[in-house]
Design a protein around this nucleic acid. Sequence first.
DNA 1: GACAAGCAGATTGTCGACAATCTAACAAGA
DNA 2: TCTTGTTAGATTGTCGACAATCTGCTTGTC
Lengths: 230, 230
Amino acid sequence: MGKADFSPIADTTRRAEIVALLRRAILTGQLEPGQKLNELRISEQMRVSRAPLREAMRELVQEGILTSIPYAGTFVIEVTAKDIDDAYSFNKVTDELAIERAWPLRDQRFFDELDRRHEAVKQATRALDTTRQIETALQLHGLIYEWADNSVLLETWQRLTSRLQMYFALHQQARNEAVPAEDVHETYVRLLKGKDMRAAQRHAREHIDLDFEELLAYARGLEQRPSKGI
Amino acid sequence: MGKADFSPIADTTRRAEIVALLRRAILTGQLEPGQKLNELRISEQMRVSRAPLREAMRELVQEGILTSIPYAGTFVIEVTAKDIDDAYSFNKVTDELAIERAWPLRDQRFFDELDRRHEAVKQATRALDTTRQIETALQLHGLIYEWADNSVLLETWQRLTSRLQMYFALHQQARNEAVPAEDVHETYVRLLKGKDMRAAQRHAREHIDLDFEELLAYARGLEQRPSKGI
DNA sequence: GACAAGCAGATTGTCGACAATCTAACAAGA
DNA sequence: TCTTGTTAGATTGTCGACAATCTGCTTGTC
């Protein structure tokens, strides 16, 4: 009889769709940091009433990519160099934990999924789709969190992911350069398949070091000049 | 001229008040795990319309103490032994980071605040106010997070706090025993004032070990018998 | 009696309108 | 000129009603 394992059916509420739409707009940089979200305008554009829109915005406020001031408005969060530095320091520690927990649980399915996600990054890189490249890279990185079998750890990663994606997107958008052609994740994937856990942890730490250093330099540059208004 | 430093004025929206009310009800166990929140009933009891109530509920869903199923309802999260174990494992690591970061930033204000919060715990203990005891103990513990000067770390702690408070409240409520008369935080406070950071980290880890062990035993016991309906 | 179809009743999701509040421009007075 | 009070416009917060969906019961059929 039926061995089919169905995935959860799609969210059927407008609210959920609005959350997805807004999140995407923020993470791809369509909505800039500091920008105010005008409820009436957005609800008219989306052809929705303000109620589900406002509920969606509350979710994103709690997710940490919007911030709300009563009677003043809801804004996309500003990104400071310290924010990035904080996220970076924190991520170092959680990465270590995630690898430690996921390590003994690695199996064939893990390795297959690892390859699959790695392939997705490479494909996005070849296609020069920077947005998708950031997205897939974070998904590749997220596998150890999904495999660590710790709900709090996973949840924390997912929260952090939103902001990291936003940071990287801003960075990419700003420098407007061609994406690196070579594959920087090759070593990471190889180590996760190997036998030396410490080495994997060390590499993860050093790897994100590189990315973050670039980000930090960018953010510090931003903070030199005054932020332009809306 | 004026040297007064004013704290931000109180939240003036119904929504914020509702969030506080609901959170308190959940964290003190007035609303039991698994219980459904009937929007109409609650909004009538609070003399508020459903709009701000629903927005408040979205916030608490993202905070992790409520869970929502479209067209079915919003429920207080169920607490499993694994949830507690996950939170515990995770907290070990973040504690270590928090102490490490806060350590060089300790100053007189830190020590004063430490004493103040310690005193609050002792007072709640003397007054046999278990709810307040849990609350103040977590606030005492949270000081290292506030002092660590890392926004992501602090935010993560605040999210975790909600659930920890809920776990402990359930536990206390269930065993219905007198609270421990002696002060278990004495050593913790002393070590945080001392010179040996490693010792403080070790103690924090072992200290929460004790609390969590009890909690885990309780939660495992719960899962033996089937949960009663609403 | 078992089972499926269909029908209330209750509850959540969404809408449009009104009330409360903020912002910015302008006027009045020291 | 600077400050303070006022006012109009825009925007957010809140409300009550309607639509969509779920649940459990009833009914009819075999």
